[in-house]
Simulated scan of single mutants.
Amino acid sequence: MSDTHVKTFANAQEAAAEAAGLAWLAEAESSGGTRIVRVLGRPSPTVLDLERIDDRSPTAVQAERFGRSLAHTHAAGARHWGAPAPGFPVDGPLRMGRSRTAFVAAEDAPESWGEFFAEYRIRDYVRRIVDAGGLDRTQAAVFDRVADRVQDGTLGSPQPALVGDRPARLHGDLWAGNVLWPADHAEPTGAVLIDANPHGGHSETDLALLGLFGLPRLETVLAAYDAEFPLADGWQDRVALHQLAPLLLHVLLFGGSYTDAALRAARRYA
């Protein structure tokens, strides 16, 4: 089997953004952050040669190591809320990939997580879903009420202490498929992360996405994270709130049952 995974992108901008994001996350490894897959080469503007990881089911030790190391990745911080990785190609709108995820330029940086999440992770998606016919106005109003409560701080929460008041350095697409568990079990950080969409955000958002699609040994990961950098009281009650962003993305891309799931989550906080 080849030691290289070849990943092809729709355009050179997406390839450059992927490489920049992985490099930015990898900076945290020196302070205990989770290991990031290596970019081994770029044979063409739209292709990256990536390290291949032989992935297997995790052990409890791997899960604990991952929880602790992820806390250190988050603690590396970001320049502002919604900040993309340094080196992110900025020709045109600050969006990337099929999802057209919104990032935020420094000159437009929100002053709080609530402002960022409300505008760029709830309202932005909802507007596009409505325009595509995926939500009616009554359904959209449920999300608008949640966005208002997020923006005014009613639904806010502190970051873990070592992140502090600044944005955390998020992976940004941390579902179970992007967490690889090396088969030799020897990785000191437990896991290797791939396919990132990194930006400055709230630590609880990455953790909520881990739980959305069934990460193995999730309880061990979360307990280890909380032991390393204690989470704010009541974080379990905010999981569905932070899951709104990936759920809305799935509504935009796929519709169907994701619409009902997103509405159920939103109604808990509206």
Rank of each mutant, 00 (worst) to 15 (best):
V251K: 08
A17L: 13
I122S: 12
L252D: 14
G97W: 07
V239P: 06
A262E: 11
A105F: 00
P246C: 12
D233W: 06
R95W: 06
S44K: 01
R137P: 00
G33C: 06
H250Q: 06
D54M: 08
E187N: 09
E111C: 10
R149Y: 11
T138F: 13
R38K: 15
F254S: 00
Q151A: 15
M96A: 10
D226L: 04
F117R: 06
R35V: 12
P188Y: 10
A161E: 15
H72R: 15
A106Y: 01
V37L: 02
Y120F: 13
A191P: 01
G114W: 04
D124S: 10
E64I: 06
G172Q: 03
A132E: 14
Y269S: 05
W175F: 13
A191V: 04
S157N: 14
I36A: 04
R166G: 15
A208H: 05
S99H: 07
P188T: 11
L247E: 00
A232R: 09
N11K: 14
W181M: 01
R166S: 11
R268H: 12
P182C: 03
M1E: 07
D233C: 00
G134Q: 05
A26G: 04
R68E: 10
A270S: 13
G156Y: 00
D144H: 12
I53H: 08
R127G: 14
V163E: 07
I129Y: 02
E119M: 13
W81R: 01
R137D: 15
D195S: 11
V179R: 00
R149G: 12
G97K: 00
A71R: 00
G172L: 09
F116E: 00
G133S: 01
A266H: 13
A85V: 05
E187W: 08
N197V: 13
H202E: 03
A232F: 11
H80P: 02
L253T: 09
P58I: 03
A227D: 15
E51P: 01
T154N: 01
E18V: 04
A15R: 11
D233G: 15
E27C: 04
S112A: 06
L263F: 05
A240E: 15
P86S: 02
V104M: 03
A23K: 03
F88S: 04
P43S: 00
R35F: 07
A266D: 13
H5K: 13
S203V: 10
G77R: 07
G255T: 07
L222S: 09
L180G: 02
H250Y: 03
T59L: 12
L215V: 14
L135G: 00
R121G: 07
E204V: 10
V104T: 12
V47M: 02
E187H: 01
A196L: 08
D136G: 10
P93R: 06
A118D: 05
A261I: 02
L210Y: 08
R79M: 08
T205R: 02
A12T: 09
Y125A: 14
V251E: 08
V221W: 00
